[in-house]
Simulated scan of single mutants.
Amino acid sequence: MSLDTVAEDIRDEARARANDIREEGERRAEEIVADAEADAEEIIAEREREVERTIEREREQTLSSAKLEAKQQRLEARREMLQRVREQVESEIADIDGAKRENLTESLLEATVEEFGEDATVEVYGRADDEELLTELLADYPGYSYAGEYDCLGGLVAESDASRVRVNNTFDSVLESVWDDELKEISARLFDQDTPTP
């Protein structure tokens, strides 16, 4: 075998080996590129999912916040409406006059008298506009006297130093009691809710 043949065989073997290495390198490069593309697609998909979750979270937070704000506005509107109704009722109560006012005041005075013992000395306070009415009514009750003005819609406040008893039978106190007892029904009527069954 000649030296040229040996050299040619070595070159052929080197070329074959170089081809194998190049093919292996290309195959490996293709695998790396495919893996990188798959990883990139997974990263992109994960980022898209994160963005969608973030959007959904923000949408839910915005919706929740909007619902809460709407609820607060409804509650505030209801409070304002109830306050207006209360003021209107107070105004109408303050405007009661004549025999109706006299009868209501007399009923409250009778209930007040029951709270004090006989022979009690009781001072009675009332609305300035009701001084004459109260003075007339108190004339039938020995020991009871009109003592001055009390800021109220009507009715009376009575107190006795001897028994340390104070009775508030004003229209205001009656209204407060009725208002508290009937607030659910008042709200139901005002805001078209089902009236709760007692």
Rank of each mutant, 00 (worst) to 15 (best):
V51A: 13
E76G: 01
T197S: 12
K100C: 09
E8Q: 15
E102T: 03
A70R: 02
I186S: 00
E24I: 05
L68V: 08
L104Q: 00
V157C: 03
P142A: 00
D95I: 02
A77V: 03
I21R: 13
D12I: 02
D192K: 09
K184Q: 12
N169I: 05
T62G: 15
R86L: 10
D129P: 01
E149M: 10
N19F: 08
N103M: 10
A70D: 01
E56M: 04
A18H: 10
S173V: 10
G117S: 03
I96G: 01
A45V: 13
D119T: 00
R79N: 14
E132P: 00
E92D: 07
E13P: 07
E13S: 13
A38R: 11
V85Y: 12
G25A: 15
R57C: 07
C152D: 04
E131S: 02
R53K: 13
I43R: 15
R15H: 04
F191R: 03
V51M: 12
R28D: 10
T195S: 14
E52K: 13
A14Q: 09
A34V: 10
E46G: 11
R166W: 06
A139F: 07
D130W: 04
D20Q: 06
A128K: 11
D194C: 01
R84E: 10
E131W: 01
S177I: 12
L138E: 00
I44R: 00
V51W: 12
E56N: 05
S177V: 09
E185W: 12
L156G: 00
A29K: 15
P142N: 00
A162N: 06
E92N: 11
E26V: 14
L3Y: 06
A128S: 05
S91W: 05
E176K: 14
D180G: 13
E123Y: 09
A139E: 13
V113A: 11
T112Y: 00
L190A: 00
E182C: 04
S163G: 05
I10Q: 09
